[in-house]
């Protein structure tokens, strides 16, 4: 009887998880299609398909093929990268605030990318390498600085906030030395923007996701067990150091590649995990749901930023305006509940 109840409960949860994932997947696909179809001019789905298949369609080949397709694709891929990277850090450090965009890892990657592109004039792939190195470096520095009789989550978060402040002003400095001070370019590196996306920026992110995504997903079970605490995880057969190293490299890599392409889109890495956790419920890996939520956030915000207002807002401004109130709400809720963050 009780065994049956357990089995039933497990079945229900699995069903719910499958349903939620399907709905999220359909939503992401629908938004991707909407991003391709709608704009100043509307193109019907069969035009889009023909453009993707390589046929020449007057008008659509340029508007969809050159402008909308790389942009929507980067929005999708970057959202997945931020979602995966964010939830990995949040789960591994067991703290929803320890997402890469709050503790300065995104700011580090962004500062390095801005330096590589604006000051050194490097190519896309060299910029990505730069951003990765900086992201890993910042992660290492934060970890070392917060180490004192073990790493305490609160100390790590506060030190990360200090790092982020410093790196953001480094970005401001790099941008202020640029010969042409262009507001759109500045906002790209401070809050993230998809304006003027080409395949040259999209392809490296796609490759990074193909390589690092499976690596991260293969560690999904171990990541889930790390939540139970180090000792428990070790007892369950997780090789702690190796798992952590793989997780950090994969997550920082994803974040850095995406940041090098479109800047640190504000709050996506931070929001994707908690939102996914709320809709999917407890007791399962959050990697795939967070990736989908991340993609959804970026696609929605970019579409809204382009067409919902009289002027075009970069996607990061939209996610920033939406995301910060949620962070404040999260703070109020946890504070009310008496929990200490």
């Amino acid at each position: 009887m009780t065994l049956e109840a357990v089995a039933r409960g497990r079945g229900r949860r699995a069903l719910r998880r499958r349903t939620v994932l399907t709905v999220l997947g359909v939503l992401v696909a629908a938004l991707y299609a909407i991003n391709l179809m709608f704009g100043k001019t509307f193109y019907p789905p069969d035009d889009i398909v023909r453009v993707i298949l390589g046929e020449r369609v007057p008008g659509a080949t340029f508007t969809v093929g050159t402008l909308r397709l790389p942009r929507a694709t980067l929005a999708l891929l970057a959202g997945v990268c931020f979602g995966l990277g964010g939830v990995t850090f949040q789960t591994m450090l067991r703290n929803p605030l320890a997402s890469p965009d709050i503790i300065g890892i995104s700011s580090g990657a962004s500062a390095a990318a801005a330096f590589a592109i604006v000051t050194l004039g490097l190519s896309e792939s060299a910029t990505s390498a730069f951003a990765i190195a900086a992201g890993l470096g910042v992660a290492l520095i934060i970890y070392l600085l917060s180490f004192r009789d073990g790493v305490a989550g609160t100390r790590l978060v506060l030190i990360g906030i200090g790092m982020a402040a410093m790196l953001e002003s480094a970005t401001s400095y790099v941008l202020s030395t640029a010969s042409q001070w262009d507001l759109q370019e500045v906002l790209r590196w401070l809050t993230g923007s998809l304006n003027g996306t080409t395949w040259g920026e999209t392809v490296p992110v796609a490759i990074a996701l193909l390589l690092l995504g499976p690596l991260l997903l293969s560690q999904g079970r171990n990541l889930f067990m790390l939540q139970l605490g180090d000792d428990m995880a070790a007892a369950l057969g997780v090789r702690l150091e190796l798992t952590r190293l793989l997780l950090i490299v994969a997550a920082v890599g994803l974040i850095a590649f995406a940041t090098a392409a479109c800047g640190p889109i504000a709050f996506v890495a931070f929001l994707a995990g908690p939102i996914a956790a709320r809709i999917i419920g407890p007791g399962a890996s959050l990697l795939v749901p967070s990736a989908l939520v991340g993609a959804l956030l970026v696609l929605v915000a970019d579409f809204a930023g382009q067409y919902a207002f009289s002027i075009r807002y970069p996607v990061g401004v939209v996610t920033g305006v939406l995301g910060a109130p949620y962070l404040i709400y999260l703070l109020i809720r946890t504070n009310r509940a008496g929990g200490s963050l």
Binding site: L97, T154, G320, G323, I328
Partner: peptide
């Protein structure tokens, strides 16, 4: 809000979140 009053962490986080919202 909440237990412990205005601890440094809570104040710094509230400030960071507010700053980010205001900057956007």
């Amino acid at each position: 809000l909440g237990r412990g009053g205005a601890t440094p962490l809570k104040l710094a986080l509230a400030g960071t979140a507010t700053s980010a919202a205001l900057a956007s």
